[in-house]
Design a binder for these strands. Structure first.
Lengths: 208, 208
DNA sequence: CACACTATATATAAAAA
DNA sequence: TTTTTTATATATAGTGT
């Protein structure tokens, strides 16, 4: 290989080693290229010098990942495969669960009932009636607590208003203001709520 | 490189190409080994021939994965990341959708109503009442078609029974059998169904 | 450090076994 | 086929610029 046979052992001199590395690196890359073209071979070559510098060659129109994957497939010990498969499994399971959930929702929405038998339909009906009751109860609870809050607010305002009135009366006895009846009740609050739908936004969850 | 300069282009003759591949493969592996020892370099070399056979060289005390990981770190373009991230994203999205579906089901089951306002509760209630109607209708449809089927079956059996009777009567005029009234109706069929719950299995989908 | 030179060692194409 | 042989092309260590 040059002026005298060299034995293949680590070159101690750093400079020489680096020089040799440059030359041989070029050489091996050239060989890789030739192999690629001459023999229609896909070659992936990665070299990392002791100083950490990285050089590579990869045949045109393929990637390192590509070749590495193939290598793993053949060598059998694919490191990523278990990972991938586990994720794929999870994905699949989640999709199935999603489908089931969708179906359940559709059934609870009165669709897709064809495959339920009489017994199941009875159960579903009962269940839904019970659930409607829950919703109704909750609705009344919400509206009554809303009403209480409004009542309190109105009362507060009335108190303030009255004290203001008294203040005015003390300063100026000319005028008399009538205090309107602000007594809130369930019905009026419901009307308030239903006449102002813009303050609520009702929407069931989208189903992808 | 031999008896006459060769130009670097694909060797058309299959045999020659294979021979050349063997030789050059040995050559490049030898070079890789030398580079490893002489220059203290980590080398990963993977070759895949056009026929699909795989050959490799990897410096001692390191793995291909090792070098590929380092290569990725330095070159910055993680070759597995896109794959991985896409799967992770999908998983995440599916989980979110699942959660939403679960929530919707819980709400349609009368649970978790705290975060719904009055307007939403009204909508939900209305929706559920409409759905219960659908289920009820379906239930009646199922039971009435079931009833029809049973009626027909009973009629068939009766016909068979009667013709058998007639056969017996013709052979043996001694005995007289009364034919019971098998006329089925809606109520009796419902009772049949509800008194034999074991022939149905009602169960909403499990939630993971 | 990067290139050029050059004597040798290696690699290898083609042919032969 | 694969291996061996052999003639030649390449690669490259050591050196110089």
């Amino acid at each position: 290989m040059g002026r005298g046979k060299i034995e293949i052992k680590r070159i101690d001199n750093l400079t020489n080693r680096q020089v040799t590395y440059s030359k041989r690196r070029a050489g091996i890359v050239k060989k890789a290229k030739e192999l690629t073209v001459l023999c229609d071979t896909q070659v992936s070559l990665i070299m990392i010098s002791s100083s950490g510098k990285i050089h590579e060659y990869i045949s045109p129109s393929c990637t390192h990942k590509n070749l590495y994957d193939k290598y793993q497939q053949v060598s059998g010990n694919n490191i990523w495969k278990p990972h991938y498969e586990r994720m794929q499994d999870n994905l699949q399971k989640l999709k199935e669960i999603n489908n089931k959930l969708h179906k359940e929702i559709r059934q609870r929405n009165g669709e897709d009932l064809d495959e339920l038998n009489f017994q199941q339909l009875c159960g579903l009906e009962q269940n839904m009636e019970k659930s409607v009751d829950c919703v109704r109860n909750r609705k009344f609870h919400v509206i009554s607590s809303q009403t209480d809050i409004y009542k309190k607010k109105v009362k507060n305002h009335q108190v303030t208003y009255n004290s203001l009135l008294r203040g005015f009366e003390e300063r100026d006895a000319n005028c008399q203001y009538a205090s309107p009846d602000f007594e809130g009740d369930y019905q009026s609050t419901i009307e308030f709520a239903t006449e102002n739908p813009h303050i609520f936004a009702f929407g069931l969850q989208p189903q992808l």
